[in-house]
Design a protein around this nucleic acid. Structure first.
Lengths: 147, 147
DNA sequence: TATTGTTATACTCTATAACTATA
DNA sequence: TATAGTTATAGAGTATAACAATA
């Protein structure tokens, strides 16, 4: 019954980690979504550009990372390419594969997006004191296996 | 340059709270998205059902809460209603307004979804010790203003 | 034969615009 | 006149299915 901490509370209260994590995740997505919309980018394309910031993956690798089908990536990247944000080029080693990477314009855009995201997400942590923010950041990084 | 904590790291490292929060948010969304897909629900509809769990809002209130236009809600709710998950009924006090609420079937589904989400999200916290999880949960709740 | 990627098709999500009904 | 909601329309995102090219 997932009542590990206390016994008297309403079902809607954040008693489990999931119940605290989900609203924060939605709030984070709302911010990213707004930044995306301001730049005419879907959340998915925003994420693609973030991945391409320091990588030159194949189509299939991109699709896997995002949990999408390859045909979906084809459409997504085709639209991004038409807008001049990314380029496709045949892979040197495998004649079947296609690499994707940012254009200079795409790189510039990603830089702006990251700055905007950092600025827009910072207020989320406002209720926390500076040491608490560090603590939170450490815990989140450990969750990611980032240690 | 957002280098508040240390000086020697790659640009991709999680130096700011945002850079730790965003991947966790995407990971959380991926889990919710999978659970939604398994139940033939979009992330948005999943969220709508979660809100309806303990509320009977008007269409406009739902749209505001999700950051969507009212026409978008009309379509979303129309499809959910056709599937027997929710019902629309005229508001008692305002003849223009329409209330939305879960059917018994919708209520049952939401119960399953919440159980699935808790179970599927729990592993995310696996790298943390039990006291660290409590700490994280506390910090996230404080971020939400849930104190 | 298996894998990489694309095209064709269909449905959901979303917004802009135009409309009806009630306040 | 302003607000609540819907319908019409169009574009992006997504998946299933069928296909071409390469391994």
């Amino acid at each position: 019954m997932t009542k590990q901490h206390s016994e008297n509370e309403t079902p809607a209260a954040a008693n489990t980690l999931a119940e605290a994590l989900v609203p924060i995740a939605f709030a984070t997505m709302a911010v990213l979504n707004r930044i995306g919309a301001e730049n005419d980018l879907s959340l998915t394309l925003l994420r693609v550009l973030g991945i391409l910031r320091d990588r030159r993956p194949r189509m299939a690798e991109l699709a896997d990372r995002l949990g999408l089908e390859r045909q979906t990536m084809s459409g997504l990247i085709a639209r991004a390419e038409k807008r001049g944000l990314v380029v496709r080029a045949p892979n040197d080693e495998d004649g079947r594969a296609t690499d994707v990477f940012l254009t200079p314009e795409g790189q510039k855009l990603v830089g702006h997006l990251i700055a905007q995201a950092q600025q827009a997400l910072a207020p989320l942590a406002e209720p926390l004191s500076p040491p608490e923010r560090d603590q939170l950041q450490t815990l989140l990084r450990r969750m990611l296996g980032d240690d």
